[in-house]
């Protein structure tokens, strides 16, 4: 892995451009609820970007009964292999950070896959609060 996805909370202004960008690219009909990144206010003018940390020993991966969550060796992201998912939703429950959202309609989990190595949110963040760092 060459670069690491990094959040820089002090740069975040809470503009939510990242959420919008993510849901446009990854969501259904730009539904903001489908965004894989969320911004939470943590104090006056303080914000925290919450998105999948691609844990090394990921709970979602180990809980999956069908190996439908697999680490992409190139990007190091944990990705959902939709064709292998049977919709048990265990991954959603298992994630300690709440980063998997199970889409009832499609019957599959939604999670950040780092957009194949070039995250859209990073590209659209106007304040360099999200970065791919070496």
């Amino acid at each position: 892995m060459e670069k690491t996805y990094t959040v820089i909370p002090k740069n975040c202004t809470g503009c939510r451009t990242c959420e919008l960008a993510c849901s446009m690219v990854k969501g259904v009909d730009g539904n903001l609820g489908h965004s894989r990144i969320n911004i939470y206010p943590t104090g006056p003018d303080r914000f925290m970007q919450m998105t999948c940390m691609q844990c090394i020993d990921a709970a979602c991966v180990s809980v999956c009964p069908t190996d439908a969550l697999m680490r992409n060796k190139e990007t190091d992201a944990v990705e959902v292999v939709e064709e292998r998912c049977i919709g048990c939703a265990l991954c959603e429950t298992a994630c300690p950070f709440g980063h998997i959202h199970f889409d009832e309609l499609k019957g599959i989990p939604l999670k950040c896959d780092l957009c194949g190595g070039e995250p859209t949110c990073v590209r659209f963040c106007p304040h360099r609060a999200l970065e791919m760092r070496r």
Partner: peptide, 28 residues
Amino acid sequence: ALENRRLPNDYYTVCSACKKSELSGHFA
């Protein structure tokens, strides 16, 4: 899931949104 997937109990008691919300403060 607890019996067959060996995961700590607390993971199951908070919804995803609340997990994120709680943790955001913690991370901050």
